[in-house]
């Protein structure tokens, strides 16, 4: 009984995704790769892909640096106001998105690549903070103190001990930050300006009209592939950590 129920739930969970993937390989019942060819020949899609990946890489880079440094400081020096880093996770995304839009309007900050990037970093810092801090809190501060007694100063200790120990957490946080940025729709759509489009925005602009087109499915399949690769590495890291 239970097994059948669970089986059905998982089938329902995967069926839509599998159907999108299948439909992207077929044209009127025949196997074809032409939808993928379309994707790779579409200037707009290629440009959006380039934008998405630049955005994800840069926001990951900055949020990992800022988030890790903060996590380290909070853990080792017993600072107050840690909840500063948790609110961005609790606040609904749409509220955060519209507040950023108002902020930019208020300052007359031009909307486009930078306005989107700055918003993505803010959100990701919080996630990096939580993940890296959880990882580092598994170690007592004695591990850094012993390095000091062995002759390494604070800076050497940070790079030779703290960073390597936090590495699994940093990698996991990077993967999550990258994925969140790569897939992000709401914050991007609120803070973008004319001329800056990412893949989720492109998919939205067509799908919002209820259009289900094979080339859109092909694009979705490709994006799924990238998300799944990231998920695979994330799962591998978290299992290894246990």
């Amino acid at each position: 009984m239970m097994q059948i129920f669970v089986l059905i739930v998982f089938t329902i969970l995967y069926a839509p995704i599998v159907l999108v993937i299948i439909s992207s390989f077929f044209d009127a019942g025949n196997f074809t790769l032409k939808w993928f060819e379309d994707v790779f020949q579409d200037e707009k899609i290629l440009k959006a892909f380039y934008n998405s990946i630049t955005l994800a890489i840069l926001s990951t880079l900055f949020s990992v640096i800022l988030g890790t440094a903060s996590a380290y400081a909070f853990l080792r020096s017993k600072m107050k106001f840690e909840s500063l880093f948790y609110t961005p996770i609790i606040i609904p995304e749409i509220t955060e998105a519209l507040s950023l839009l108002l902020f930019y309007k208020f300052l007359s900050f031009p909307l486009g690549f930078f306005s989107v990037l700055l918003g993505h970093i803010a959100f990701n810092i919080a996630f990096v903070f939580v993940i890296v801090k959880a990882r580092l809190s598994g170690y007592e501060k004695s591990i850094e103190e012993v390095s000091l007694t062995l002759g390494a100063n604070e800076v050497q200790t940070f790079f030779r001990v703290t960073i390597p120990i936090a590495m699994p957490g940093i990698v996991a946080a990077s993967l999550i930050a990258f994925t969140l940025s790569w897939d992000n729709f709401i914050k991007t759509v609120f803070t973008t300006g004319p001329g800056f489009q990412t893949l989720p925005l492109l998919i939205w602009s067509q799908a919002a009209r209820g259009v289900v087109s094979p080339s859109l499915s092909a694009l979705t399949t490709l994006m799924l592939l990238i998300s799944m690769i990231l998920a695979y590495f994330y799962v591998r890291i978290s299992i290894k950590r246990e």
Partner: peptide
């Protein structure tokens, strides 16, 4: 600072 003292230390949790 400790890194200029040339002392060795074995911690309780070994670290």
């Amino acid at each position: 600072p400790p890194y200029k003292r040339n002392i060795g230390m074995v911690f309780q949790d070994l670290a």
